[in-house]
């Protein structure tokens, strides 16, 4: 296992290196520089600024410098936020986004799996139809519509929770609900389909033939086998949620990473774009690694140690 993880971490570094390089060159194809919008600057002033940030050097040299700095753990300084280090800017913004993402993911998978299991166990009854209805609603209502509804009814009319602020846990509840809808719907649909298929398999008939009740069959034999395909879809979804849904963050005034990312693209703030992209890539690769390890825990056939023949 340790050997496997080491190998995967090496792959992870290579992946990040490639992503960093590709992003770097893609950005250089973008028209304009960080300072081309500042109309009050004279040509001389711009040249001074370019020289200060090393933008006057040939692109290969810039690339070399950037990569060397990344290895040192230095992501550079932002152009738009008065020379603040990118690392600090990211760190300030990651917290809220991650908190929302993790909360939405936990709620989404637990409720989603529960709904899916119920729907599959009571297939073609009102429980199944109800769960399907909820899942379709969750998938089809855009999160900003839900966000606005939550704000109006729970925040304004009932006044139970803050409408749009970022002070402690209570202000994270509404955005979490808005974000969790999609994972709930996805997990519920997936779980239902997979479970129904598993219920039809021979080993489930054998489990019944041993005298297990329907509930025991589901809990002891079926759910674990149905989880395997679900994990595959949940991984990328987790990354999407944790790196921030820009719309939901904006509606609830959450100081997250998504909003900052958009702003930096519009202002050609290269270091921030690079830093955020690298961070997203890092998160995605780590989650994929976690998923692969989870597979092994759930399904012995893909256990990674390969120790026994």
């Amino acid at each position: 296992m340790a050997k496997y993880i080491t190998k995967r971490i090496i792959y992870l570094i290579i992946t990040l290196f490639i992503i960093a390089s590709v992003t770097f060159f893609l950005m250089k194809f973008l028209p304009g520089t960080p300072f081309s919008n500042e109309e009050r600057l004279t040509i001389e002033q711009r040249e001074i600024l370019n020289a200060k940030y090393g933008l006057d050097q040939p692109i290969p040299i810039q690339y070399m410098n950037y990569m060397v700095n990344i290895v040192k753990g230095d992501l550079g300084v932002s152009f738009q936020f008065e020379n603040q280090p990118v690392m600090d800017l990211l760190m300030n913004r990651i917290g809220p986004s991650m908190q929302l993402g993790v909360q939405a993911m936990i709620i989404g998978t637990i409720i989603g799996i529960a709904l899916g299991v119920l729907a599959a166990m009571f297939q073609n009854t009102w429980i199944d139809y109800g769960s399907t209805f909820l899942a379709i609603l969750g998938k089809s209502i855009p999160s900003f519509v839900l966000a606005a509804l939550l704000q109006y009814y729970i925040g304004v009319k009932l006044g139970w929770l803050p409408v749009a602020s970022w002070n402690g846990f209570s202000s994270s509840i509404l955005p979490t609900i808005a974000l969790a809808c999609f994972p709930i719907a996805t997990a519920a649909r997936f779980m239902r389909t997979e479970l129904i298929e598993v219920f039809g398999s021979d080993y489930i008939t054998l489990a019944k033939a041993k005298g297990n009740s329907r509930g025991e069959v589901a809990v002891k034999h079926a759910i674990r086998n149905a989880l395997i395909p679900l994990i595959t879809v949940l991984g990328p979804m987790a990354v999407g949620l944790m790196t921030g849904s820009m719309v939901v963050e904006k509606v609830f005034a959450v100081p997250g990473i998504g909003e900052q990312f958009v702003k930096s693209i519009m202002t050609n703030d290269f270091p921030i774009i690079m830093g955020t992209t690298l961070f997203f890539a890092f998160l995605l690769t780590v989650i994929i690694l976690i998923i692969d390890i989870l597979y092994g825990i759930i399904d012995p056939r893909i256990r990674l140690n390969g120790g026994d023949k």
């Binding site: 398999s201 021979d202 080993y203 008939t205 054998l206 489990a207 033939a209 002891k220 034999h221 674990r224 086998n225 759930i298 399904d299 012995p300 056939r301």
Partner: peptide, 14 residues
């Protein structure tokens, strides 16, 4: 009961 196909009649994750 014993089933026809032993390849599918045992729970793969147990």
């Amino acid at each position: 009961m014993i089933f026809q196909d032993p390849m599918t009649s045992l729970n793969p994750t147990m």
